[in-house]
Amino acid sequence: MPPNKTFRTLASVLRLMLGGIFMFAAWIKIKDPMSRALFAIDLDAYKIIPLRYVQTVAWMLPVAEMMLGAVLILSAVGVLLRPGNRLLMVSLRLSSVLVCLSLVIFIGAMSWAKLSGKNIDCGCFGPGEPISWKTMVRDGSMLAGAMFVAWTAFLPRRKTA
């Protein structure tokens, strides 16, 4: 069944919000050399990535976040303006799924650190934010929103006259 107008509006708003949050989170991490170095320290504290790759990943991850956020926003706006465009639909579906997947990875890493008894920073939106139930709930809410966004991106569209 095609989604109604309220449903589609909510999905569009969530896409723009998630895209904006991803771009903001990325900008905080790469805005200057000190922020980049601090993010590398936060990333290394998880002890998931081998030390020799930490600096590279600390640079690539925010860039990927930035691109993903931008693609999600552009696709969401594009689909609103040109509903029948197949390329935009593919881009919207792909970016929605990737946002979901990245949030699953982020929450998984935080849960693992918390369960391992590590008192470390989350690294989500810059330094000075330790992993806590608050950060888990916040990212969990974002994941719920992202799943909704991904699900609606795969629903059949209402036929236009």
Binding site: P33, A37, L38, I41, V54, Q55, P127
Partner: peptide, 19 residues
């Protein structure tokens, strides 16, 4: 900036050296 105790010295250096 609180830095975790497990920080590797090379990463600490890149932070201290960052402009």
């Amino acid at each position: 900036f609180p830095i975790p105790s497990t920080v590797d010295y090379s990463l600490l250096r890149s932070f201290l050296d960052a402009p």
